[in-house]
Design a protein around this nucleic acid. Structure first.
Length: 286
DNA sequence: CCCCAGGTCAGAC
DNA sequence: GTCTGACATGGG
């Protein structure tokens, strides 16, 4: 077992790993376990920072610093948020909530599977997919078996029926279709990171099963485009309830509001609003 | 039995 | 541009 300690302040590890941006983190032994790439990983948070444990020699830990976005100055990010009572409440209710920077393919595939599913169910589908079609990774003695996330090439080679067996329903042809486009190099996920936000979004929108919302999730959670602003039912609820309680703006109008109102780190603001609505405001509808 | 879930798509005005 | 229903599956 290889261990490393990262000194970091204002990092709410549990809330971050459990805030609907990643779907493979499980609480265990006072910490959190998952797989990043081909590596099993355990993270243990404390007031001083985060301890990481892996089985394979990490060479250096840059990949994890990047994944956890440890070098982000959260105070500076929060300072750019609009100073309104709702944002203040959202910040206060989940101090230290962060954005991760995940693998683009895993993030893309996970969010293709997310449509009209609750987060618990997305986690179930992803776990089933990994158990059935991922590759085993090394885990500690006595630990159960764990698989990596299956590659696009692997999924492209599966039949739609095999994918439906993982309980993903009508999302199966979307996932397969997107995996095929990647396997055939009709899109290069690595190249997307070097594009402008608009071009990157347009590229992702070419994939089947990827609309504006899922594209923005991938842009924000995997590519680090901090101006991407995914609007799902929860964020839509937040915008309507908090910012437009009387009027009833169209989704397109609301989207334009978000582009100007929340500033250069609007993606962060979005995550705070999402987490706030989901955990603190109950399921009031409007 | 009902309604809803980190939506997308095709087809209709 | 906006609205509608279909699409699987499971939670509450």
């Amino acid at each position: 077992m290889f261990k490393e300690f990262f000194r970091v302040r204002d990092y709410a590890l549990a809330e971050t790993l459990n805030s609907g941006q990643a779907f493979r983190w499980n609480p265990a032994d006072e910490g959190w376990e998952s797989v990043i790439g081909q590596r099993w990983l355990r993270l243990i948070g404390s007031s001083e920072g985060i301890q990481a444990q892996t089985m394979s020699h990490p060479d250096d830990w840059g990949w994890l610093r990047e994944y956890l976005q440890l070098d982000v100055d959260l105070t500076a990010v929060l300072a750019t948020f609009p100073k309104d009572a709702h944002m203040e409440a959202a910040i206060e209710s989940s101090r230290g909530l962060r954005l991760l920077k995940q693998d683009p393919w895993e993030c893309l595939a996970s969010f293709i599977l997310s449509s009209t599913k609750q987060i618990v169910q997305i986690r179930q589908i992803v776990e089933t997919l990994c158990n059935c079609h991922g590759e085993p990774v090394q885990t500690p003695d006595g630990h159960g078996p764990v698989n990596s996330f299956p590659t696009a090439e692997k999924i492209a080679a599966l039949t739609e029926a095999e994918l439906r067996a993982c309980k993903m329903g009508f999302r199966a042809p979307y996932l397969k279709g997107s995996a095929e486009m990647i396997a055939r190099h009709e899109i290069d996920l690595a190249a997307v990171s070097m594009m402008t936000l608009e071009d990157a979004r347009a590229a992702l929108l070419e994939l089947p099963g990827v609309g504006r919302k899922i594209a923005d999730c991938v842009l924000l959670f995997a590519y680090g485009f901090q101006g991407a602003f995914p609007v799902d039912v929860w964020v839509m609820r937040a915008l309507r309830q908090l910012y437009f309680p009387r009027r009833r703006p169209s989704p397109a109008r609301l989207l334009r509001f978000t582009e100007s109102y929340f500033g250069p780190y609007s993606g962060y603001a979005q995550q705070y609003l999402f987490h706030y609505m989901r955990t603190k405001m109950g399921r009031k509808r409007q």
